[in-house]
Design a protein around this nucleic acid. Structure first.
Lengths: 107, 107
DNA sequence: TATTGGTATGAAAAATGTTTCATATCATAT
DNA sequence: ATATGATATGAAACATTTTTCATACCAATA
């Protein structure tokens, strides 16, 4: 069974490796939003959110839908909920207290 | 149910968002290896592999084990196999032919 | 202790990714 | 056709990550 890790994967994980995009994901969990709403909610520029949304849409982690004259984005829960659950499980099992992102005392 | 996305997650996904590290993961799937073996197999410097392994170990996606005078690294299959299976499913469902990483014809 | 095989580390260089800014686009309504 | 509200885009500025290079470390042995 081959997943072609080195090909598609880095690209997919990269989409989720950025705080801004994760914040967008977190917000979209509450329901669909358009770019303007997201940027206001997160206090970031419309342009920045738009750029970052592209990365999420390209991977289909977020799906766009035209609604009247606006464009709303909604989360691909089918993929993301199990994904985050998995990470959550992993953290609880393998990263006890605080799995420090930087500067662990030693390897 | 809160997973604390914006906190730990970017860090975890970042570990898997790099081709070199994914290649390491792919190799370790075949079995445990030490740094020297990995670097030779991938044709990369020992230092580079070592640096990249740190990122994987910090997240506990790869676990180190002392074996005599060498140090072998083995994959945390419990987390990674389901993770990649999930991505594989996602790609098959949402990214038909070739979910181009760059330059999709349009959003 | 000196040597050897194996490994980690810090810092600079190189490569990538992110944000900003100004502007273009697009759909709808007037 | 023009105006409006909403959104996308390219390119430069800025920031972060990755790789390289030189060197230090560590455990075991002679």
């Amino acid at each position: 069974m081959k997943y072609g890790l080195s090909e598609a994967c880095p690209f997919f994980f990269a989409a989720l490796s950025n705080p801004t995009r994760l914040a967008v994901v977190e917000l979209l969990r509450e329901g669909p939003r358009n770019v303007t709403q997201i940027s206001k909610a997160l206090g970031q520029s419309q342009s920045m959110i738009s750029h970052n949304l592209q990365a999420l849409v390209r991977c289909r982690f977020v799906l766009p839908e035209r609604r009247w004259k606006e464009r709303v984005y909604f989360l691909n829960r089918e993929t993301l909920e199990p994904l985050f659950k998995l990470v959550d499980c992993h953290v609880q099992t393998y990263c006890p207290k605080k799995c420090s992102p930087r500067k662990p005392s030693r390897g």
